[in-house]
Nucleic acid binder design. Structure first.
Lengths: 105, 105
DNA sequence: TGTGCATATAAGCAAATTCTTATATACTGA
DNA sequence: TCAGTATATAAGAATTTGCTTATATGCACA
C-alpha cells in the first residue's frame, strides 16, 4: 500500500470517535442513531464522521426502511490494515451497553 | 491498548511525512539533516514533526557529536502496533537514495 | 396526503495543525 | 575563543478539523 494513501486511512482512524466507531462496526453493523446514543454526540456530528469514512470507501451503507446501516467495507484495499489495527484494541462492549435502552427498532 | 491513546498514535502516523519517517526509522536511525534532504523540507518543519513523535514517546534520541540520531522506541507501549502498521507499507529505499549524496558525515 | 422520525447537508466558528521566518542553543575544529 | 554546522524553539499565518445550528431529504404510517 502506498504511504500517501495509507496516511489518509491512519488519519481517519486517528480520531477517538471514529476509531471507536470502527471497533464497534467490527462486531456489528450500526446506524447513525445508535452512534448518537453511544457517543452522546449530535446527529450531524455523527453523520459527518461517517461521511468521511464513506468517502474513503471504508464503510458501506444499506438502507433498512428508515434506517441506514453502516458496515466495514471488506472489499476496501485498506481492510487488511484496518483489521490489524483494530485487533490491538479492546471490544467496545461497554459503549454498546450504554446505548442498549436506546437502540432503535 | 486504550482507544483514546491509540487514536493519538494513529493521528501521529496519519501524516504522509511522519509515516515515511517511521518507515525509514524502521530500517535505520536518522538525524534531522537527513530528513530535510529526503523530504526537501525545512529544518524547523522536520524538527517539529520529530518533536511530536518524541513527546509521544515513539522515538528516542542519541547525540553523536553534532548530530542527534533518532530511533524508533522499541520500549514504547505502541511499538507492537507500530510494527504491524509499518509492515503494510513498502520500504522507503527510493527516498533514501535521493539523499545519498547529501548524507551528513 | 400530511406528520414524524432518521439521516444528510450547508454554513459558520473555534481549536488544532503545519508550515514559515527569525532566533537561540549545542557542539566542533581552527 | 570564534566561526560554522546541526538542532531546537518561538511566533505568526494559512489551512484543516470537528463541532454547532439550521434546513433539506427520504421513508413509514395513519
Amino acid at each position: 500500500m502506498e504511504i500517501e494513501r495509507g496516511a489518509v486511512l491512519l488519519k481517519l482512524l486517528g480520531d477517538r470517535t471514529r476509531l471507536s466507531m470502527f471497533k464497534i462496526l467490527e462486531s456489528r453493523d450500526c446506524c447513525v442513531c445508535e452512534f448518537t446514543a453511544i457517543f452522546e454526540m449530535s446527529q450531524p456530528a455523527v453523520s459527518q464522521h461517517i461521511r468521511k469514512l464513506k468517502d474513503a470507501g471504508l464503510v458501506t451503507e444499506s438502507r433498512k426502511s428508515q434506517w441506514i446501516y453502516y458496515s466495514l467495507n471488506k472489499e476496501s484495499e485498506f481492510y487488511p490494515l484496518m483489521q490489524d489495527i483494530l485487533s490491538h484494541f479492546p471490544s467496545q462492549e461497554e459503549n454498546l451497553k450504554n446505548s442498549l435502552q436506546i437502540t432503535c427498532d
